[in-house]
Design a protein around this nucleic acid. Structure first.
Lengths: 218, 218
DNA sequence: CCCGATTCTGAACAGCGTTCAGAATCCTAT
DNA sequence: ATAGGATTCTGAACGCTGTTCAGAATCGGG
């Protein structure tokens, strides 16, 4: 009964084609420009067909988000190799910023979309907790790093989640502001991100002066 | 010849009605929900009439932005009364965050809209420089405060604009993240904003320990 | 009171997400 | 081989969007 397998495979393939077309459009023109009819043209099917594979436009965006979260994690993961607790936090911040700068469309989709996919993702996570969820992994990754730094007595404060969210917010601020309007900033995104990471790490460290690794330590 | 005056007054009044209706819709439902036909219903004119008073939907948003910038400045202005340079920076950060938290729709319109009114505002500012422009005033306000702190020798670094933009980015990160998805944050926006302001000021200050004013110093 | 200028509107255009009846295809069972 | 049910696909439509424009209505100076 290889027929059922083949049909399922074909179904999965078309689904993948839809996602590929959608991702291309989002990357090139942004999520607002993602149109069902545009996808339909790209895959050479009618627009109505897409609804046999995805509930609606939102569902396509959500799936793209899941994949982009994996992408983000792949940027941040290497930071665990940095042994020094504060250095690791610095490395995480830098890699997060680099992801946003190098993949603005994905970043916008993940963290800056009006309909807020993040909201939907976190709601889903709350209903069906899944430690393997990339979003959850990414956040826990930061919290853990803060915990390690706290345990080593190098932090001035002791609220891992608060500090993790502050670090996230700080770098997010740089990236999102740069994406929303580069014109409003005189400094380069790179300088801004680097300054932000260093300042935040310096601000949370127990001792005033911190030995900050070289900038290439991303 | 009071007729011309009256006509002009009536014209200005209708224009104001359009803006008032638009502001109400944006505040209650967000900019995406701002529809020409919705405004038309509210002011009891046809949708086409609006185009006699504004070039397009974007122009209405831009005008609302100008007014919201004034609103933002009114939040930050009192911070000049804080004499201590670092305390003033702290006060500015707090008041900026408070504006965003208390006026999320306005904040979103100013700094988080896809079409980026900020971009348009800065482009206009660049063509016709106007020191009285609220946006320009707001940014210069922060830069000046950083300069004062730098001149008093209380800063570790010496690049006023870079530092100003980093401070802006940091608080913007907190506010925008909270607006995009409160659900993703465990900490309260208020705690996050306060921690961010304190950490950033601590991070840029020359001496490690900073005497931070009480939280009510907004 | 006329007539040009101003002000306003209904209808239309092209585009959007989404739905649905029906056509087309495919696979199974006889 | 073929009948027929399930699956897959599509064209047309609905209601919505921003915007344009010809023409109607009003207004005010001469």
């Amino acid at each position: 009964m290889g027929i059922a397998e083949r049909k399922e495979r074909q179904r999965a393939e078309l689904r993948e084609q839809i996602l590929a077309a959608a991702r291309r459009i989002v990357t090139e023109e942004g999520f607002d420009a993602l149109t069902m009819r545009k996808i339909a043209d790209a895959i050479e099917y009618s627009a109505a067909t897409i609804y046999l594979y995805f509930e609606n436009r939102e569902a396509i965006g959500l799936q793209l988000c899941h994949e982009s979260f994996e992408h983000l994690v792949s940027y941040m993961a290497p930071a665990v190799q940095v042994a020094d607790p504060l250095g690791r936090l610095l490395a995480i911040g830098r890699s997060y910023a680099r992801f946003g700068i190098e993949n603005p469309a994905e970043y916008r989709l993940l963290f800056m979309t009006h309909s807020s996919f993040l909201e939907a993702l976190f709601a889903a996570e709350r209903e069906h907790p899944d430690p393997d969820d990339p979003g959850e992994r990414a956040f826990q990754f930061v919290v853990d790093a803060v915990r390690v730094a706290g345990a080593s007595g190098k932090l001035a404060t002791d609220d891992p989640e608060l500090i993790a969210e502050m670090l996230w917010s700080g770098v997010h601020g740089v990236v999102s502001l740069a994406i929303t309007c580069k014109a409003a900033l005189v400094s380069s995104v790179e300088d801004l991100a680097e300054t932000m990471c260093r300042t935040l790490v310096r601000g949370i460290s127990a001792s005033g002066d911190v030995t900050l690794g070289s900038r290439s330590t991303s």
